[in-house]
């Protein structure tokens, strides 16, 4: 019983925090999706009009899907780029591990906005990339398509989120019992077979964690697409932001936020089913 009392004492700050700052706002948001307006008398009118607007206009769901696609491509690219780095850190780096880990993490300490803005300078028509391309004689005049495109958004997202992808993969690789790798080679496995049949499958929990660590926040991104996306690279987050800040249509904005949340949860459920995470977890 004493233990139970202590549990309550220890858990209550967190429970309070989650309740006040997560659950209550979430409930408010859900309630808002049924309101007719943001303020005044309409605020107290309950209606399904927002749902009709949202589902009646295929632009919204199409934008949600295309945003999800951007996030998905950015996530997959980040993982493909981060995996070799994490692998090197876990198995080859030796004494340099800490230094290299810092090299990966330190850029993330610089203001996010600044880093996204830097891509504007690199990808812009008078930007670094164009200067290099022209100097190399690959293009004759500045290529305008680099900035304000879906690709620009993806490149910047990959760059911004890479450290957060590398870390969980590194931890998963680090946790693999070295005797399993020895066993694989003892049983006749070549380096590649050992990687394919032992290391890669055992690092999948880290890869899955990395995927969601980048997929979920990038799906809600609006700064990167705002600065680099133009009209082609617009993401769902930008529409939500404009519903709240410009159109002052909080009910529709709330419904869109709810849509993102449910979409992500559904995806997570499918993913967990497919990968069956519990299979990878060692007893």
């Amino acid at each position: 019983m004493r233990q139970r009392r202590w549990l309550i004492v220890l858990m209550s700050p967190l429970a309070l925090w989650l309740g006040l700052l997560f659950l209550a706002p979430l409930a408010t948001m859900v309630v808002f999706t049924f309101r007719a307006g943001s303020f005044g008398p309409e605020h107290d009118v309950f209606t399904l009009e927002n749902y009709r607007t949202f589902f009646g206009n295929p632009t919204y769901s199409r934008l949600l899907l295309s945003s999800a696609w951007i996030s998905f491509v950015a996530s997959v690219l980040s993982i493909l780029l981060a995996y070799p780095v994490a692998y090197y850190l876990a198995f080859q780096a030796g004494a340099h591990r800490l230094t290299l880990l810092l090299v990966i993490i330190v850029p993330a300490w610089i203001s996010f906005l600044l880093r996204v803005f830097a891509w504007k300078l690199i990808l812009g028509s008078g930007g670094l990339l164009n200067i290099v391309l022209m100097a190399a004689g690959l293009v004759d005049e500045p290529a305008p398509i680099l900035l304000y495109s879906r690709s620009a958004v993806i490149v910047a997202l990959v760059y911004s989120y890479m450290p957060f992808v590398a870390l969980p993969i590194f931890v998963a690789l680090q946790r693999i019992d070295r005797s399993l790798i020895e066993a694989a080679s003892d049983l006749g496995g070549t380096g590649w077979q050992t990687f394919r049949d032992v290391i890669l499958p055992l690092s999948m929990p880290g890869v899955a964690a990395a995927f969601f660590l980048i997929f979920i926040p990038t799906l809600g991104e609006y700064v990167t697409p705002l600065l680099l996306g133009g009209t082609e690279g617009l993401m769902f987050g930008n529409v939500i932001q404009s519903q709240f800040a410009r159109a002052l249509n909080w009910p529709l904005g709330s419904l869109m936020s709810l849509a993102v949340l449910l979409f992500t949860l559904a995806l997570l459920a499918v993913f967990v089913r497919l990968v069956r995470l519990e299979d990878w977890v060692q007893a």
Partner: peptide, 30 residues
Amino acid sequence: HLRPVNTVFQNYALFPHLTVAQNVGFGLKV
């Protein structure tokens, strides 16, 4: 992997993501 010997490890070093049959068949498969 090219030596004609096999090891039984102290901690067994069984592959946790494979079944018993897949563990035993690993050497033959590779």
